[in-house]
Simulated assay, not measured.
Amino acid sequence: MNYLAQIKRLSDDVEEEVVLRINGLEVTCFATVCPYKIEEGASYQVELTAQVFNEYLVSELDEDASASIVQIGGSFSHVITGRLSGNRLEAGAIVFEDDVLLSDFGYLEGKMIAWKIDRIDAEFLSDDFRK
């Protein structure tokens, strides 16, 4: 999904690490495509993609669970909590799409779930899409 994201922090240690503020949430991402120089405090159009490199870890939660995106330690991994709707996981103001959610976990349709991912990729869209 595409979002207008403000750069909150660029990492001094990992060139691809960027902390974005999107719809009031701060998310640590891996900048996979960045065709121009980005600066802290500036806003850019980005496309977010959840990446799972091996096994999908998805669990059903109680209906009163709150939507969230929680970073695991200082890694790029996160646990995304939200409501499953087809191939979309609605984690509050941020939505992630993945066809495996539908094909392998469709039986959890409409339920609150937790999904452990390896990282969130941020693709900075071309200058034509910048704001």
Score class of each variant (00 low, 15 high):
residue 99 D to G: 06
residue 21 R to S: 12
residue 109 E to N: 09
residue 92 G to N: 12
residue 94 I to K: 02
residue 47 E to A: 10
residue 71 Q to K: 10
residue 77 S to K: 15
residue 76 F to L: 12
residue 88 R to F: 01
residue 69 I to T: 00
residue 70 V to C: 02
residue 98 D to S: 14
residue 97 E to Y: 11
residue 54 N to P: 00
residue 31 A to Y: 05
residue 60 E to Q: 11
residue 22 I to P: 09
residue 45 Q to T: 15
residue 50 A to E: 08
residue 27 V to C: 05
residue 71 Q to G: 07
residue 61 L to A: 09
residue 93 A to E: 14
residue 59 S to F: 07
residue 73 G to T: 06
residue 24 G to M: 04
residue 66 S to W: 01
residue 26 E to D: 14
residue 66 S to F: 00
residue 90 E to P: 02
residue 57 L to N: 05
residue 51 Q to S: 09
residue 13 D to V: 13
residue 95 V to M: 11
residue 56 Y to H: 11
residue 25 L to W: 02
residue 30 F to W: 15
residue 68 S to C: 01
residue 81 T to M: 00
residue 73 G to Q: 09
residue 56 Y to E: 11
residue 105 F to D: 02
residue 86 G to K: 06
residue 100 V to Y: 14
residue 100 V to D: 14
residue 14 V to C: 01
residue 34 C to Q: 11
residue 80 I to A: 13
residue 76 F to V: 02
residue 98 D to E: 14
residue 100 V to S: 12
residue 75 S to L: 02
residue 45 Q to Y: 12
residue 32 T to N: 13
residue 92 G to Y: 15
residue 45 Q to C: 15
residue 64 D to I: 06
residue 53 F to K: 08
residue 42 A to K: 12
residue 93 A to F: 00
residue 83 R to N: 12
residue 65 A to R: 00
residue 80 I to S: 02
residue 69 I to P: 01
residue 53 F to P: 05
residue 71 Q to F: 03
residue 30 F to K: 05
residue 41 G to N: 10
residue 24 G to R: 00
residue 86 G to V: 09
residue 18 V to N: 03
residue 33 V to P: 05
residue 61 L to P: 11
residue 72 I to L: 15
residue 30 F to D: 12
residue 98 D to G: 12
residue 65 A to V: 04
residue 64 D to Q: 08
residue 25 L to K: 06
residue 56 Y to R: 06
residue 65 A to W: 01
residue 74 G to Y: 06
residue 96 F to P: 06
residue 44 Y to T: 13
residue 99 D to S: 10
residue 88 R to S: 05
residue 60 E to G: 02
residue 110 G to N: 02
residue 60 E to M: 09
residue 89 L to D: 08
residue 109 E to I: 07
residue 14 V to M: 04
residue 22 I to E: 04
residue 28 T to N: 11
residue 94 I to Y: 02
residue 46 V to D: 08
residue 104 D to R: 14
residue 65 A to D: 10
residue 70 V to S: 09
residue 14 V to S: 04
residue 67 A to P: 15
residue 103 S to W: 13
residue 98 D to W: 13
residue 47 E to V: 08
residue 50 A to M: 13
residue 92 G to P: 12
residue 76 F to Q: 00
residue 81 T to V: 10
residue 13 D to G: 09
residue 22 I to Q: 05
residue 38 I to M: 03
residue 41 G to I: 08
residue 54 N to G: 10
residue 94 I to V: 07
